[in-house]
Amino acid sequence: MSGLSTRHVVLGLLVERPGYGYDLQQRIDARLGFLGLAESAVYKILERLEAEGWIEETGTRRIGATRRGAPRVMYRATPLGRERFRAWIAAPCERAVLRDELQAKLNVAEPDDLPELLAGAEAQARACLAELATLSRPALASVAEPEVPWRDAATMMVDDFRVRSLQTLVDWLDAICELMEERIRRASRPAPPVPR
Protein backbone atom coordinates (compact mmCIF):
# COMPACT_ATOMS: atom_id res chain seq x y z
CA MET A 1 0.00 0.00 0.00
CA SER A 2 3.03 2.15 -0.12
CA GLY A 3 2.22 3.33 -3.59
CA LEU A 4 -1.37 4.16 -2.93
CA SER A 5 -1.94 7.35 -1.02
CA THR A 6 -4.95 6.81 1.23
CA ARG A 7 -4.56 10.41 2.40
CA HIS A 8 -5.37 11.67 -1.06
CA VAL A 9 -8.29 9.26 -1.36
CA VAL A 10 -9.83 10.63 1.86
CA LEU A 11 -9.05 14.18 0.77
CA GLY A 12 -10.73 13.49 -2.57
CA LEU A 13 -13.88 12.29 -0.84
CA LEU A 14 -14.02 15.53 1.13
CA VAL A 15 -13.45 17.55 -2.03
CA GLU A 16 -16.46 15.75 -3.43
CA ARG A 17 -18.63 16.75 -0.48
CA PRO A 18 -18.16 17.33 3.26
CA GLY A 19 -18.37 14.30 5.48
CA TYR A 20 -17.56 12.72 8.80
CA GLY A 21 -15.39 9.71 9.69
CA TYR A 22 -17.91 6.91 9.51
CA ASP A 23 -19.48 8.27 6.36
CA LEU A 24 -16.04 8.49 4.72
CA GLN A 25 -15.23 4.92 5.71
CA GLN A 26 -18.51 3.73 4.13
CA ARG A 27 -17.85 5.61 0.93
CA ILE A 28 -14.33 4.16 0.70
CA ASP A 29 -15.65 0.70 1.31
CA ALA A 30 -18.23 1.02 -1.43
CA ARG A 31 -15.87 2.28 -4.07
CA LEU A 32 -12.42 1.10 -3.08
CA GLY A 33 -13.21 -1.90 -0.93
CA PHE A 34 -9.95 -3.52 -1.87
CA LEU A 35 -8.12 -0.86 0.20
CA GLY A 36 -9.59 -2.45 3.30
CA LEU A 37 -9.43 0.74 5.38
CA ALA A 38 -10.79 0.46 8.91
CA GLU A 39 -12.76 3.31 10.50
CA SER A 40 -9.96 3.96 12.97
CA ALA A 41 -7.48 4.39 10.13
CA VAL A 42 -9.80 6.94 8.59
CA TYR A 43 -9.82 8.99 11.80
CA LYS A 44 -6.01 8.95 11.86
CA ILE A 45 -5.88 10.20 8.33
CA LEU A 46 -8.39 12.94 9.09
CA GLU A 47 -6.24 14.17 11.95
CA ARG A 48 -3.14 14.35 9.79
CA LEU A 49 -5.00 16.11 6.98
CA GLU A 50 -6.35 18.69 9.40
CA ALA A 51 -2.87 19.22 10.85
CA GLU A 52 -1.53 19.96 7.36
CA GLY A 53 -4.33 22.44 6.78
CA TRP A 54 -5.83 20.48 3.85
CA ILE A 55 -9.20 20.06 5.60
CA GLU A 56 -11.09 21.85 8.28
CA GLU A 57 -13.89 21.15 10.70
CA THR A 58 -17.27 22.64 9.82
CA GLY A 59 -18.92 21.75 13.11
CA THR A 60 -20.66 18.74 14.56
CA ARG A 61 -23.87 17.09 13.55
CA ARG A 62 -26.10 14.55 15.19
CA ILE A 63 -27.35 12.08 12.67
CA GLY A 64 -30.05 9.65 13.61
CA ALA A 65 -29.31 6.96 16.15
CA THR A 66 -25.69 6.35 15.69
CA ARG A 67 -23.38 4.24 17.72
CA ARG A 68 -22.66 5.70 21.08
CA GLY A 69 -24.95 8.51 20.07
CA ALA A 70 -21.91 10.76 19.79
CA PRO A 71 -22.13 13.74 17.55
CA ARG A 72 -20.25 13.51 14.27
CA VAL A 73 -17.49 15.94 13.41
CA MET A 74 -17.98 17.17 9.86
CA TYR A 75 -14.99 18.02 7.70
CA ARG A 76 -14.52 19.78 4.42
CA ALA A 77 -11.56 20.47 2.14
CA THR A 78 -9.78 23.81 2.45
CA PRO A 79 -8.68 25.73 -0.68
CA LEU A 80 -5.17 24.43 0.00
CA GLY A 81 -6.57 20.93 0.28
CA ARG A 82 -8.35 21.27 -3.09
CA GLU A 83 -5.14 22.50 -4.63
CA ARG A 84 -3.22 19.50 -3.25
CA PHE A 85 -5.92 17.15 -4.42
CA ARG A 86 -5.76 18.49 -8.03
CA ALA A 87 -2.01 18.19 -7.92
CA TRP A 88 -2.30 14.57 -6.81
CA ILE A 89 -4.81 13.72 -9.57
CA ALA A 90 -2.51 15.24 -12.15
CA ALA A 91 0.65 13.59 -10.76
CA PRO A 92 1.91 10.31 -12.31
CA CYS A 93 0.51 7.20 -10.66
CA GLU A 94 2.45 4.56 -8.84
CA ARG A 95 2.21 1.13 -10.48
CA ALA A 96 0.64 -1.62 -8.40
CA VAL A 97 2.43 -4.97 -8.34
CA LEU A 98 0.37 -8.12 -8.80
CA ARG A 99 1.43 -10.54 -6.17
CA ASP A 100 0.39 -14.08 -5.72
CA GLU A 101 1.30 -16.64 -3.15
CA LEU A 102 2.05 -19.06 -5.95
CA GLN A 103 4.99 -16.86 -6.92
CA ALA A 104 6.44 -17.30 -3.52
CA LYS A 105 5.84 -21.05 -3.59
CA LEU A 106 7.50 -21.34 -6.98
CA ASN A 107 10.54 -19.63 -5.61
CA VAL A 108 10.95 -21.94 -2.68
CA ALA A 109 9.68 -25.27 -4.14
CA GLU A 110 11.87 -28.25 -5.10
CA PRO A 111 11.59 -30.12 -8.45
CA ASP A 112 9.79 -32.94 -6.64
CA ASP A 113 7.02 -30.53 -5.78
CA LEU A 114 6.14 -29.97 -9.45
CA PRO A 115 2.94 -32.11 -9.44
CA GLU A 116 1.65 -30.28 -6.40
CA LEU A 117 2.52 -26.94 -7.92
CA LEU A 118 0.61 -27.93 -11.03
CA ALA A 119 -2.44 -28.86 -9.01
CA GLY A 120 -2.13 -25.62 -7.10
CA ALA A 121 -1.90 -23.60 -10.28
CA GLU A 122 -4.97 -25.25 -11.69
CA ALA A 123 -6.89 -24.64 -8.52
CA GLN A 124 -5.78 -21.05 -8.70
CA ALA A 125 -7.11 -20.73 -12.24
CA ARG A 126 -10.44 -22.19 -11.19
CA ALA A 127 -10.54 -19.77 -8.29
CA CYS A 128 -10.00 -16.94 -10.73
CA LEU A 129 -13.05 -18.11 -12.67
CA ALA A 130 -15.00 -18.22 -9.45
CA GLU A 131 -13.97 -14.71 -8.67
CA LEU A 132 -14.95 -13.63 -12.13
CA ALA A 133 -18.41 -14.95 -11.42
CA THR A 134 -18.68 -12.66 -8.42
CA LEU A 135 -18.08 -9.56 -10.46
CA SER A 136 -21.09 -7.68 -11.71
CA ARG A 137 -21.93 -7.75 -15.36
CA PRO A 138 -20.41 -4.55 -16.67
CA ALA A 139 -21.90 -2.26 -19.18
CA LEU A 140 -18.49 -0.91 -19.83
CA ALA A 141 -19.65 0.80 -22.97
CA SER A 142 -21.83 3.05 -20.80
CA VAL A 143 -18.69 4.71 -19.43
CA ALA A 144 -18.71 6.63 -22.68
CA GLU A 145 -22.24 7.88 -22.01
CA PRO A 146 -22.27 11.33 -20.29
CA GLU A 147 -25.66 10.54 -18.73
CA VAL A 148 -24.21 7.73 -16.65
CA PRO A 149 -23.12 9.09 -13.22
CA TRP A 150 -19.39 9.48 -13.05
CA ARG A 151 -19.12 7.45 -9.83
CA ASP A 152 -20.74 4.40 -11.50
CA ALA A 153 -18.52 4.81 -14.54
CA ALA A 154 -15.45 4.93 -12.34
CA THR A 155 -16.47 1.74 -10.56
CA MET A 156 -16.94 -0.05 -13.90
CA MET A 157 -13.53 0.97 -15.07
CA VAL A 158 -11.91 -0.21 -11.86
CA ASP A 159 -13.79 -3.51 -12.14
CA ASP A 160 -12.58 -3.89 -15.70
CA PHE A 161 -9.06 -3.67 -14.40
CA ARG A 162 -9.81 -6.51 -12.02
CA VAL A 163 -11.16 -8.64 -14.86
CA ARG A 164 -8.09 -8.00 -16.94
CA SER A 165 -5.88 -8.84 -14.02
CA LEU A 166 -7.69 -12.12 -13.71
CA GLN A 167 -7.13 -12.77 -17.43
CA THR A 168 -3.43 -12.09 -17.02
CA LEU A 169 -3.29 -14.39 -14.07
CA VAL A 170 -5.18 -17.18 -15.83
CA ASP A 171 -3.00 -16.85 -18.94
CA TRP A 172 0.12 -16.90 -16.80
CA LEU A 173 -1.08 -19.98 -14.95
CA ASP A 174 -1.87 -21.66 -18.25
CA ALA A 175 1.58 -20.89 -19.57
CA ILE A 176 3.52 -22.07 -16.54
CA CYS A 177 1.41 -25.21 -16.28
CA GLU A 178 2.22 -26.10 -19.88
CA LEU A 179 5.90 -25.51 -19.29
CA MET A 180 5.94 -27.50 -16.04
CA GLU A 181 4.06 -30.37 -17.67
CA GLU A 182 6.55 -30.45 -20.50
CA ARG A 183 9.34 -30.44 -17.96
CA ILE A 184 7.84 -33.42 -16.16
CA ARG A 185 7.40 -35.25 -19.46
CA ARG A 186 10.94 -34.63 -20.60
CA ALA A 187 12.30 -35.62 -17.23
CA SER A 188 10.50 -38.96 -17.45
CA ARG A 189 11.93 -39.66 -20.92
CA PRO A 190 15.57 -40.76 -21.13
CA ALA A 191 16.31 -39.35 -24.59
CA PRO A 192 14.14 -36.37 -25.28
CA PRO A 193 13.88 -35.45 -28.92
CA VAL A 194 15.14 -32.03 -29.72
CA PRO A 195 12.85 -30.58 -32.31
CA ARG A 196 14.63 -27.28 -32.70
Partner: peptide
Protein backbone atom coordinates in the same frame (compact mmCIF):
# COMPACT_ATOMS: atom_id res chain seq x y z
CA UNK B 1 -14.93 -22.23 -11.47
CA UNK B 2 -13.80 -23.40 -8.05
CA UNK B 3 -16.48 -23.98 -5.42
CA UNK B 4 -17.06 -20.95 -3.24
CA UNK B 5 -15.87 -22.84 -0.20
CA UNK B 6 -12.55 -23.58 -1.79
CA UNK B 7 -11.85 -19.93 -2.32
CA UNK B 8 -9.62 -19.73 0.68
CA UNK B 9 -6.90 -21.37 -1.34
CA UNK B 10 -6.60 -18.32 -3.49
CA UNK B 11 -4.70 -15.23 -2.73
CA UNK B 12 -7.21 -12.62 -3.75
CA UNK B 13 -6.56 -9.47 -5.69
CA UNK B 14 -3.74 -7.55 -4.04
CA UNK B 15 -4.92 -5.75 -0.99
CA UNK B 16 -8.42 -7.14 -1.23
Amino acid sequence: PADRDARGAVIPFPGS
